[in-house]
C-alpha cells in the first residue's frame, strides 16, 4: 500500500508542470521508473537544489543562484543600455535572438490595477534607483503590447523622463510569415504607422 501511494504521490507531484495533466503525469512517472531512474534521480536532485538556491538578481531581478546574474556581472556588457522585460524567460529569448549587448531589468509582470499589481510589485523603485545612479542613456521597453503593458510602459517612461533618459520600445507589427488578411486591425494600423524605408 505504501509503495503504491508513493507512486501516486509522484504522479500528483508531476501534475504541477505546465501542460501536464493526469495522463501525461502517469506516463512520465512510469517512464522514469522503468526506463530512466538515473535521469529521474538527477532531475530530483537538480530540482531540489534549484528550488532553494535560485533567487532574484539584486540588480536586474532575473533568476540566478548568485547575488548578481551572469549578465549583470559581465563587464563587457554596455552599461548605457537598459532593456526592460516582463519575465526572466524573455531575457533568455532576447539573448538568443538578438545581438543586444546591454543590461536588463525584469519587472516580473505588468501593471494590473484590477489585480492589485502596482509599481511596488514591479520593482519600479529599484529601477528608479538604477536610473538615478547609473549612466544609462537609453531604455528599451520590450513589454507585451497589451493595454496593461501600455500602462506599464507609460509609468516607466514618466520616471525615465525625470532623469532625461531616452526611452524606445521594440517595434510592433506584422509577424514574419504572417498574412495581412488575417491580422487584427490594431496590429495592422500600428504596422502601417510604423512603416520604414526599404533599404
Amino acid at each position: 500500500m505504501g509503495e503504491r501511494s508513493l507512486l501516486n504521490q509522484l504522479i500528483d507531484a508531476l501534475r504541477c508542470l505546465p501542460g501536464v495533466g493526469p495522463k501525461s503525469a502517469r506516463r512520465i512517472a512510469f517512464y522514469l521508473l522503468e526506463r530512466d531512474r538515473d535521469g529521474g534521480a538527477q532531475l530530483a536532485r537538480v530540482m531540489a537544489e534549484a528550488m532553494v538556491a535560485i533567487r532574484r538578481c539584486t540588480r536586474c531581478r532575473t533568476l540566478t543562484e548568485h547575488d548578481l546574474c551572469a549578465l549583470c556581472a559581465n563587464p563587457q556588457r554596455d552599461a548605457a543600455l537598459l532593456c526592460i522585460v516582463e519575465q526572466p524567460s524573455e531575457v533568455v529569448a532576447l539573448e538568443q535572438a538578438t545581438d543586444y549587448r546591454g543590461q536588463y531589468f525584469v519587472l516580473g509582470g505588468r501593471l494590473s490595477p484590477l489585480d492589485g499589481i502596482g509599481p511596488d510589485e514591479l520593482g519600479l523603485n529599484m529601477l528608479e534607483t538604477r536610473l538615478r545612479d547609473e549612466a544609462i542613456t537609453e531604455i528599451i521597453l520590450a513589454i507585451s503590447p497589451t493595454v496593461e503593458g501600455r500602462a506599464t510602459a507609460q509609468l516607466i517612461t514618466e520616471r525615465a523622463a525625470r532623469y532625461g533618459i531616452r526611452v524606445t520600445r521594440i517595434a510592433q507589427g506584422v509577424p514574419l510569415g504572417g498574412e495581412l488578411e488575417y491580422l487584427d486591425s490594431g496590429t495592422l494600423a500600428l504596422a502601417f504607422a510604423g512603416r520604414r524605408d526599404v533599404v
Binding site: 501593471l111 490595477p113 492589485g116 509599481p119 509609468l155 514618466e158 520616471r159 523622463a161 525625470r162
Partner: peptide, 17 residues
C-alpha cells in the same frame, strides 16, 4: 480601489516631475 491608488501615485510622480 487599486486603480485609485495608482492614479494618485501617477499624479504624485507627475507633479514631482
Amino acid at each position: 480601489l487599486h486603480s485609485r491608488e495608482l492614479y494618485r501615485h501617477w499624479f504624485a510622480a507627475h507633479h514631482l516631475h
